[in-house]
């Protein structure tokens, strides 16, 4: 089977100085800035190779700062690699930070439209699915008022509903298996499991090892920007647990 995502020798570097210099400073002292750019940086990913085949669910585990979220952002394309190649052959549906594309001052309905289109649908398709999205999210009449009035749970529920109604082909999930109350958590988890069983390729980043075990057939363990272990989920989890225990 063909690869949905193929990553070759991926490196990602961030400058360590995160304070932003002023333009006036920059103009006055250009050589200084260019030089500083060269020496202080941090490698978030160091030569990663990953291939995910169609219909696979790949788990990504590891300690905080291991490079998991950076990896997802790079695959999604909101970050660019410093070195290396990423090839993606399917439409991506990110479930990273739910509701990231929402604007607080417009209504739920207006946000559904924009986010549906951002996630790959056409406007008319979103309109067709509007009722399904609203009913799945269980936010009811709140859909016609600005989302800044929503509770955190409602906000997340709406965002999740939009995402799963955009015909996902390739899911990128970062720690979102706790959407809303327990009832909705169960519902959303079931939906994701159904999508995976239905053949949707998935990368699941999570600290919830039970969920990884349940959903992923293969897992990689990222530590310090490098792949420490890779293979069958059970074995990788075992090694991971032994190591941190």
């Amino acid at each position: 089977m063909s690869y949905v995502v193929k990553i070759d020798d991926l490196w990602k570097r961030f400058p360590l100085r995160r304070d932003r210099p002023g333009f006036k400073e920059f103009i006055v002292n250009i050589p200084h800035f260019l030089q500083r750019n060269q020496d202080s940086h941090f490698w978030a990913l160091k030569g990663i190779n990953i291939g995910v085949k169609e219909g696979e669910c790949l788990g990504v585990i590891g300690r905080n700062g291991g490079g998991k979220s950076t990896l997802l952002s790079l695959i999604l394309g909101t970050m660019y690699p410093t070195k290396g190649n990423i090839k993606v052959s399917k439409k991506m549906t990110p479930l990273l930070e739910l509701g990231a594309g929402f604007h607080p001052d417009i209504t739920g309905r207006e946000n559904i439209l924009i986010n549906g289109v951002l996630l790959g649908l056409m406007r008319d398709e979103v309109i067709d699915r509007m009722d399904d999205i609203i009913s799945y999210s269980e936010i009811g009449d709140f859909v016609d008022i600005p989302v800044r009035t929503y509770s955190t749970g409602m906000y997340l529920r709406l965002a999740f509903s939009i995402a799963i109604y955009t015909d996902p082909e390739f899911l990128l999930i970062d720690e979102i298996l706790s959407v809303g109350d327990e009832f909705f958590q169960k519902k959303s988890k079931n939906t994701i499991i159904q999508l995976i069983k239905g053949g949707v390729t998935t990368i699941l980043v999570s600290h919830n090892l039970a969920a990884v075990k349940e959903m992923c057939n293969r897992t990689i363990w990222l530590d310090n920007g490098e792949i420490t272990a890779e293979g069958e989920t059970e074995k990788v989890l075992e090694e991971y647990l032994r190591n941190i225990g």
């Binding site: 952002s73 999604l76 909101t78 991506m92 990110p94 990273l96 930070e97 990231a100 594309g101 951002l118």
Partner: peptide, 9 residues
């Protein structure tokens, strides 16, 4: 910034 960082478009 949220859109720029978290959504691809």
């Amino acid at each position: 910034i949220q859109l720029v960082k978290k959504v691809r478009f």
